[in-house]
Design a protein around this nucleic acid. Sequence first.
DNA 1: TGCCCTTCTTAACATTTGTTGCGTTTGCCC
DNA 2: GGGCAAACGCAACAAATGTTAAGAAGGGCA
Lengths: 239, 239
Amino acid sequence: MIWAPLFQRLKTTTGADDRDLESLAALPFTLRNFRENQTVLRDGEQPTECCLIADGFCVRSKTVVDGRRQILSIHIPGDLPNLQNLHFPSVDHDLIALSDCTLAFIAHKALNDLIGERSGVGDMFWRDTLVDAAVSREWIVNVGQRSTYVRLAHLIVELRERLRLIGRVIDNTFEIPLTQEQFGEAMGVTSVHTNRILRELRIDGVLELQRGTVRILNEHKLQELAQFDGRYLQMSPSS
Amino acid sequence: MIWAPLFQRLKTTTGADDRDLESLAALPFTLRNFRENQTVLRDGEQPTECCLIADGFCVRSKTVVDGRRQILSIHIPGDLPNLQNLHFPSVDHDLIALSDCTLAFIAHKALNDLIGERSGVGDMFWRDTLVDAAVSREWIVNVGQRSTYVRLAHLIVELRERLRLIGRVIDNTFEIPLTQEQFGEAMGVTSVHTNRILRELRIDGVLELQRGTVRILNEHKLQELAQFDGRYLQMSPSS
DNA sequence: TGCCCTTCTTAACATTTGTTGCGTTTGCCC
DNA sequence: GGGCAAACGCAACAAATGTTAAGAAGGGCA
């Protein structure tokens, strides 16, 4: 059931109406598989569908002139990484599959028709893009102000909270299938430096990363380090 | 007429419907003045109104535990910096007046009622928050991947394009009333380093910054440096 | 005018991060 | 099982950026 992670998230962040969700689930979609490193959407493209990540991980990224690449966001099952194309024809970044992925494509027309009928669906989607924006703002803080050591801890806690919501965290262990180079691209540092910082985190007994599997070694130390304030994820309906 | 810059922007980015704009202009609002450095919204607050910047500059910012501050976005007349509170009760950052400011506050209720009546207004606002999100993503790239020298050039070109749209650029000169420390906070570097980079830009004959007034010395050099691709601002309706 | 505060400016030095290079490990495919 | 490519690990050195400190310049106000 491809809708489960999205519905889980929408219910948590917005207390979604069940009939709105049912109407969403009734929409036609096309499943497409992507392989690791395959480009889903290219900068400048004008998609006519929105995609829902049914399985796997994707990232948004931008490449600057000298070839350096910045990862803008990490997307997990249940995410709708190009909802903005309901309003703007072109994507202004790349969307790339990090792992083998299954994506459900839903036509803009079908979505727009549904939004026209049920304004609650439009509100849910608007909220979803607002959370996406809040995550981007937190990333600006992460890259701009936190030391690489803390930055990596914060990034990993953010991902853990989002993965926990869709049931992907077991025994303090979870998958974030990025290479060290890709973690570096998310943090604005090189792979060499990412390696240095990971070593420190391992030696300090905070956490361990092995080929995309994160294991928390000391929850208390991690919390103290990351100083994670998850309000921006809007995971508790009261916020 | 407080609506002019907003309408100018909405027309350019979305080809707004005139009747939607008229209905907006008919909404009741309260004008409030803020002084330089005064906090408009504090992290955690639950505003019941959205604000429109009628005059002056504001910034969103977040402060991390060790006291360092990151500026998340710079807002100019015509911006609606807390539109997201139509959907989420709390702000997750501070909103601070950089200069003496005049803000128009519009009640959420009035806005929501209007959106209920005229879905085009809701669409415009949704689009506006999407552009805001696109700007945040570009800032992640700026802070993460560009050298401080290029980063400052890029930031200034972005602001120039946005200011130009509302008629605030004259003869390659315009106001961005940030101190060097605040420019640093927007770029994730210290004021000392900002000063170093500004000196280089001045010596290289690219641009000059004096107490918040920017003067472009060599447009060609600036363009070549910043490699500014303004598509993310959605200023041409065709994008 | 003179005082005071903020901002700007610069230098010397410390720390972080990037660059280059190379050896090791891992996973995949024949 | 052997070979290959990608990812990991690490060290030496270079470059960018932070820290600290101090003086200069500017603006507001008595």
